[in-house]
Design a binder for these strands. Sequence first.
RNA 1: GCUCGAGUGGUGGAAUCGGUAGACACGCGGGACUUAAAAUCCCGUGACCAUUGCGGUUGUGCGGGUUCAAGUCCCGCCUCGAGUACCA
Length: 960
Amino acid sequence: MEYNFKEIEQKWQRYWQENETYRVEIDRERPKYYVLDMFPYPSGAGLHVGHPLGYIASDIYARYKRLKGYNVLHPMGYDAYGLPAEQYAIRTGQHPAVTTAKNIDRYREQMDKIGFSYDWRREVRTCDPGYYKWTQWTFIQLFNSYYCRDERRARPVAELARHLAERGTRGLNAACSAKLSLAADEWRAMTGREQREILMNYRLAYLSDALVNWCPRLGTVLANDEVKEGLSVRGGYPVVQKKMRQWSLRVSAYAGRLLEGLERVDWPESLKEIQRNWIGKSRGADLFFEVEGAAERIEIFTTRPDTIFGVTFMVLAPESPYVPLLTTPGQAAAVREYLDRAARRTERERQAEVKRVTGVFTGSRAVNPFTGEAIPVWISDYVLSGYGTGAIMAVPAHDGRDHAFARHFGLPVRQVIDDGQARDVNEESLDAKSGTLVNSGPLDGKGVEEAARLVIEEAARRGIGGEKINYRLRDAIFSRQRYWGEPFPVYYKEGQPHALDESRLPLVLPDVDSYLPTESGEPPLARAAGWVAPGGYPLEVNTMPGVAGSSAYYLRYMDPRNDEALAGDEALDYWDSVDLYLGGAEHATGHLIYARFWNMFLHDIGVARRPEPFKKLINQGMIQGRSSFVYRLLLSRDGGGTWEATDLHVSLGIVRAVEALADPRERVARVVAAGGELPPGVNAVSFQEAHVDVSLVKNDLLDTDGFKAWMPELADARFLLEEGKYACGHAIEKMSKSLFNVVNPDTVVEEYGADTLRLYEMFLGPLEASKPWDTRGIDGVHKFLRKFWRLFHAGGAFGVSDAAPAREELATLHATLKKVDKDIENFSFNTAVAAFMICANELTAAACDKRQVLEPLVIALAPFAPHVAEELWQLLGHRESVTGASFPRWNDEFLSRDDFDYPVSFNGKVRFKLPASLSAATAEIEASVTAAPAAAKWLEGKQVKKIIIVPGKIINVVLG
RNA sequence: GCUCGAGUGGUGGAAUCGGUAGACACGCGGGACUUAAAAUCCCGUGACCAUUGCGGUUGUGCGGGUUCAAGUCCCGCCUCGAGUACCA
């Protein structure tokens, strides 16, 4: 019987569906394990072979854990809100829900063909009202919470209001947008409206006028992680800074906890490093500078308080609130001109011109609190409004950027730190944080660290500053001016936002007649008829960003149909948190920060059971495309002045040979020699490289008939072959439709089967590595499956022997089981597949058909190639599914074969275990030691526990 | 610029704790079976030298170092990739 993968795979996929084999429920008798994939955005292009890489790996692990006896939660769903469906709606008028549902069906169909063990009853879609009810619910909890720094957790805003009523801001240590100081009676004297305005500064979801990334082409604001190098990540459109009234999440309040939490999770070090840099903790001081002739004090943040005696000027960000307060009438015109120019520039332009120094003097002077010296206050866009206080003290001698500014505007430079090397700080700044203080009055002679400490102490004593820790992480802009997203559960009363009553959730996304902004520039939701809360109050017309729906979906999978809570207590207690999360590293500064923040908040309010949502995380690499090329011959009759195209396509080897020649006549002759017929008068040849659809290419050889049929204009194509074959060129590029290098999993499944696809994706290389999809080599794993199948079908028909296996056969089996077990635990799936291949080769060579050997191998192979495993298991006479949850066979007994005294490890290394000392060694070992006198000498008098030898050579000696 | 990571045959990659470098697979060469093809199986395959025979030399980006022993550890470079980018 042949290995008929098509029949087998359809049969078992149907079986799993009909029997709900992967349905999972809470089971207190068994330990739980939660394996999660990052859920996909269902794009119109469908899945290509790169997408399932992580899904296959997590599926193998989930199946393996089931065999180990765990109750495995392994769900899948869709991040269904997003821009492409909305843009498609704008173009075609088709409702994004229709587009999305269609794409989801296609994704599901493709995934089903690969044989995943998801519990599909738990599927979630972020655009489903039953799902986003809880996204909206969480938003209301954020709106009604503030962050208490003393308790380091979120607390109800109602408690904050009580505190303000009793004691004002005294004794209050809370994350806040502004520096507020308020007495209790002041608070009590306020109107309700005024009080709400104050509270808005504390809420974890808050509305404020913020400087935001506005993308005119997309017609929406974007969060920092959605902008790269001044362009939108989606589409690559320019972004400008704009002041707008927007919702934000107070992620910055959690910066410290987000940083510390990284130490408790098992994530790739590189990913943690990215998050650490993004959170960007820096330790320093904040200091206040008086301004001559003004009541205002300028607050700055510096990491270098030790350089305070070197401050020769100050700089404000153009958007700084100090700017209007400190601009003198004489400078007003110049300042306005500078601000106008700064505001007009896109982020991209601003970043491109980093090296160009620009700025303007405010006319005001500040006073250095340590020297009493008056120093000018400037404005420049090299100071960012979003970091620190948006104002700095400039120390040109010890900061490169300040130095460039001082040089450009002729401001003084004063060295206050000496690193012991002769240098001129007028030429180049000395930025290193080491050396001895000079020109610094009482600090002279001190080291940098000590000086910094003394300045902070002195500032604190005088009430003009103190130690300060600053984070780069900023609050997340949380509203989008788009249609296809969660509506905010918010209405406006007297111009102020109020949270909708929870009983009114979900607030369902209404239909609109157009997905474009209104004439007055309002988001599409403003078009919805009757978009008002009870009482006629207008509802919010912004929608939430993508991260809203993707920040707690892993909790919802635990209890996806619960209408009373995000997830019930029983489910939360049992499933706890995600044990293994698999996804791409590109989400490091987006989803993976927001999800941690969101989860920490849900933990604070008693929903999530752990502060960290994802215990272990693995990044699967990207799969790139491998493009193929054909080479069309171009010829010229005037020595290369003008070229004319031919329909002759030349095989790669000939192209290479011709291109290696410099002389045009030799090149022409080479083409003719290869069999190319050229019209008379041709005196130069060249080639035009063109992408060819990779489905027409196999092992770099072109299917020439298929090529002719590919496009009408190629129907008359002719070929210049090598040994009867046309060889294509290739290059590694992004997998993309326009490069004709997209490979769909369906076509691979069609040709080789799902089990081959699964094995091959794993065999391609380490999970974390980025690698190109290269179909050459897929035959190798397919051959393995056929070989494995044949072990059970030695005489053509199925048949295994119940005879006792030989020692060698058992040794092969046990080496394989051990190796595979270890490799799965280390997520080294490529070497696990290799171990199966070695095993199959050895058993084939031994013509082994013993049940005792083959049966355990079926179990071990089941996580990787579940379809063929099920079929063989059934042929072996079992009724129970080998991949079902009720099949926990992968235990110590299954693996423990230490009783084998074979001194053979997997790579064929020979290991002899010796008793306590060398004197007890066998004569053979002594002979080896004699053959290596240097080693023997070194061994003299040492207690030896173990010696590893190869013939005539000692490789490892373990001392006792 | 700063931070992190990686460089191994013709190719993808293995060597998991410092212990026979190149597992496994592709490709390539040779052979068996076959009227033939497919499929399958066997042998060879880092480079150089020697092949009448065991074999010898060299080899993991470059230059040093530690060690009985280095792809692996240390120091200094080179190249490539990723993240970030005026973060005071």
